[in-house]
Design a protein around this nucleic acid. Structure first.
Length: 769
DNA sequence: TCCGCAGATATTTTT
DNA sequence: TATCTGCGGA
């Protein structure tokens, strides 16, 4: 221990770094030892502790920035943590690795690509890519006759990879006499082989291949074991087995070659932070045991509990505590706060999803009238499909909103096409990418031609890309042959610039020279026009990327896009309400939170009810949602919900009954909203605290008025203060104010029945009377 | 090869 | 409710 970098802390950590911390937090910042588990309840200031701990290590010179590896759950969290550390101690923070598991592993794998038998230019398959590949394999093997589905096979394989079971290992353990197992093995084998051939990795590979790399090449592992002296992992409760194994590898004492003369080093110190009550990714292989059994895995580790909550009011915490206490086999935790009980939780039962959405919109406007900013409000949903009615009502009410990860930009067909061009140029081995763009824009290369090329490629064992050059030998029509050869030449030519050119320039060259952009612009279809605009947006994103990363290559850009997550696009200052899934909401906090769709079959979700541990996990999801709220929490549900064309009756979520009745003030309860038997499960939404019974059901025609998908357009209808209007849902009213101009003009209307509303004049379902 | 139509089909959460 | 698939005709 003569190394000055490994000395125990002296007085190196300044008081400023410890300012405002409670004793447990302070200990978590200052503790020095081999392994530390920080059990951080919701809102207990763990990010602050983690950043100060890192800052302390740097400030006291116990570590250089390059010796720090911090793993966060999202890229955005990583960027924020980096900023905060920099803010605490200045530039000395540069050189740290703060990133997600996936980003860190890709970085390692690119450096060591050769060792693992891949090219440095490997591409990353997202879920859609994996699905496309799996679809082909299942079709080819006729595996659907045995009941295999694309999703099913992929999730089996994903689980195997998360358990670090590769094809060989699975072949050894699989029960081959079971025909289904045998076919699964074959699917796994072909899937793996196809990825290899394409020089590509899927999301799970990124982690597992890194572990395999470290195990197969101890000298490579030693590189990182020597380098990283402090490994910190946030959200540890959501790590899967492969990630756990990776952490274990990283904190192993580095093994040195015989006679290298290097001094032995202890393993890196490990700090993990997490809360088993917030584990919500079991479906992705997250294993709660990683955190529960941490002390067994890493003997002599120190455990620090952070139980004081600095985020929420006592009412919100009481609700959260009451709910989560229904999960048995958990270590009791007792979150407390000193800020006081705060406002009551507000409950609301709508007639339909639209009614519920209207409630949310109305309450948001009230909050805004009371001085809140849209940024301070978030609306949570269980499933992505729930966002639609919310969007429709928000548009009508002129409430600015964002849906991080909603209709994902990078998942749109035209954007994927453009990305496939880039991928094919960066990684010519990627057949999947080439197949996607071969006939986009239309070149007359149909399925028959593709099959001929595929056969040729297989015969000669070459990637599809090389077949483009051999096209004249395939005996196809002259027109098609020319088209193929020209495509090949274009890709080759642009491919030659990849190492030096800026991503945006490469993309622009591809989009113009193939005529893809132009073909969309000229088509006359308004949808194609929007698609062309999306391509332009992609170009400008590529430009932005280069501005942010002046050295960034095409490969870097592709990696960034592949690992871009929903939570990364949350902007806290853009003046809009965020609508997101409960999963995306993890780690975030808002003054006001709306938890919507609190119904059976939605939360808990129908699909989870029969899964082992499913109900407990859904409850944790509910818990995560509740604990995001700082001051105000709204719980809402609908008595009927439209799903896939028809409407079904919804029951209140069983979890609602777990919240003590006195904490909730029901604006409109299930009491009258649900017709029929008021017994049994209906008790779940308490009636005794009903504040007001819902009005008699409206005329059927009124509340089933379909809110059409196509945006209504009132042309250049203009309204002035004093105008009387009629709204299809709200009835008659009088305009009290008009703000904004042109298509964004907003009218404030005092309705006779429905109260005051804000409406976007151009699209609201209104007419002057 | 391309286009349009009819009918089937899926239906959680995500790096 | 979309989105995808398969089929027949141009």
């Amino acid at each position: 221990m003569s190394d000055p970098l490994l000395l125990p802390p002296t007085t190196g950590v300044s008081d400023a770094l410890l300012e405002g911390l409670n004793p447990q937090q302070r200990e978590a910042v200052l503790y020095r030892g081999q392994s530390l588990l920080i059990v951080a309840g919701a809102g207990s200031g763990k990010t602050s502790v983690l950043t100060r701990r890192i800052a302390g290590l740097l400030q006291s010179r116990e570590a250089w920035p390059s010796q720090i590896l911090a793993i966060t759950f999202t890229n955005k969290a990583a960027a924020e943590m980096r900023e905060r550390v920099r803010g605490l101690i200045g530039e000395a923070a540069d050189g740290m690795w703060i990133s997600t598991f996936h980003s860190a592993c890709v970085r390692i794998l690119r450096r060591q690509a050769e060792a693992m038998g891949m090219k440095q230019s490997f591409t990353i398959y997202d879920t859609a890519d994996s699905r496309a590949l799996m679809k082909r394999i299942i079709k080819e093997l006729d595996a659907d006759t045995l009941g295999f589905t694309v999703g099913g096979a992929l999730s089996r394989i994903s689980r195997l990879k998360n358990e670090l079971t590769d094809v060989e290992a699975f072949a050894r353990t699989a029960n081959i006499s079971d025909p289904k197992e045998a076919v699964l093995l074959e699917i796994f084998r072909q899937y793996t082989a196809a990825l290899r051939r394409a020089n590509a990795l899927d999301f799970d590979d990124i982690i597992s291949e890194t572990v395999f790399l470290f195990r197969a090449f101890p000298e490579v592992a030693a590189l990182y074991q020597k380098r990283f002296r402090h490994v910190l992992v946030d959200e540890y409760q959501d790590t899967n087995h492969a990630q756990y194994a990776l952490v274990r590898e990283l904190v192993q004492p580095p093994r040195f070659a015989e006679g290298s003369g290097e001094r032995p080093l202890p393993g890196a110190s490990l700090t993990v932070v997490g809360d088993s009550d917030q584990s919500i990714y079991a479906f992705r292989g997250a294993d709660i045991r990683n955190i529960v059994e941490f002390e067994r895995d890493f003997p002599h580790s120190k455990v620090i509990l952070l139980e004081q909550n600095y985020r929420s009011t006592q009412n919100i915490l009481d609700a959260a505590n009451a709910v989560i206490s229904n999960n048995f086999d958990r270590k009791a935790k007792n979150l407390f706060t000193v800020v006081g009980s705060g406002e009551k939780i507000v409950g609301y039962t709508g007639y339909s999803g639209h009614d519920e959405a209207q409630f949310v919109a109305d309450e948001i406007e009230k909050l805004r009238d009371a001085g809140a900013s849209y940024n301070d409000v978030a609306v949570f949903v269980r499933t992505n499909s729930q966002t639609r009615p919310l969007e429709e009502i928000f548009i009508r009410s002129a409430i600015p909103y964002r849906i991080p990860g909603g209709t994902k930009f990078y998942e749109r067909a035209e954007v994927k096409d453009a990305m496939a061009y880039l991928i094919q140029v960066a990684n010519p081995d990627d057949d999947l990418a080439l197949r996607r763009i071969m006939n986009v824009p239309k070149r007359g290369i149909g399925p028959a031609t593709e099959a001929a090329m595929q056969a040729h490629a297989e015969r000669l064992g070459m990637p599809l890309r090389e077949v483009l050059r051999d096209a004249p030998q395939l005996g196809l029509g002259p027109k098609v042959t020319t088209a193929i050869v020209e495509l090949g030449e274009l890709l080759d030519e642009i491919g030659a610039t990849v190492a030096t050119a800026a991503p945006a320039d490469i993309l622009t060259a591809l989009l113009t020279r193939t005529g893809y952009h132009q073909s969309l612009k000229n088509s006359g279809d308004p949808q194609d026009e929007a698609r062309a605009e999306n391509l332009e947006e992609l170009v400008s994103q590529a430009k932005e990327f280069r501005t942010a990363n002046p050295e960034g290559t095409l490969i870097d850009f592709l990696t960034g896009v592949a690992l871009f997550a929903a939570a990364d696009e949350i902007d806290d200052h853009d003046g809009s309400v965020s609508i997101m899934t409960l999963h995306t909401a993890k780690g975030l906090e808002y003054d006001s939170v709306f938890l919507t769709g609190l119904e059976e079959d939605l939360l808990p979700h129908r699909m989870s009810v029969n899964e082992a541990g499913g109900l407990a996990e859904e409850r944790r999801l509910f818990y995560v949602g509740i604990t995001r709220a700082r001051k105000r929490l709204f719980l809402s549900l609908a008595a009927s919900r439209a799903s896939f064309g028809d409407v079904s009756v919804a029951m209140p979520s069983r979890y609602l009954a777990e919240i003590p009745g006195e904490l909730i003030e029901w604006r409109q309860s299930a009491g009258g909203g649900f017709r029929g038997g008021a017994q049994g499960r209906l008790r779940a939404a308490p009636m005794r605290d009903s504040y007001s019974l819902p009005p008699a059901p409206k005329q059927k025609t009124e509340w089933t008025t379909p809110i059409t998908n196509k945006v209504r357009d009132n042309g250049d209808l203009t309204l002035a203060v004093g105008d009387r209007i009629r709204h299809t849902d709200f009835g008659d009213g009088r305009v009290t104010a008009v703000t904004g101009a042109g298509p964004k003009a907003v009218a404030e209307v005092q309705f006779e029945q429905a109260g005051r509303k804000r409406l976007l004049i151009k699209i609201a379902p209104i007419e002057k009377v």
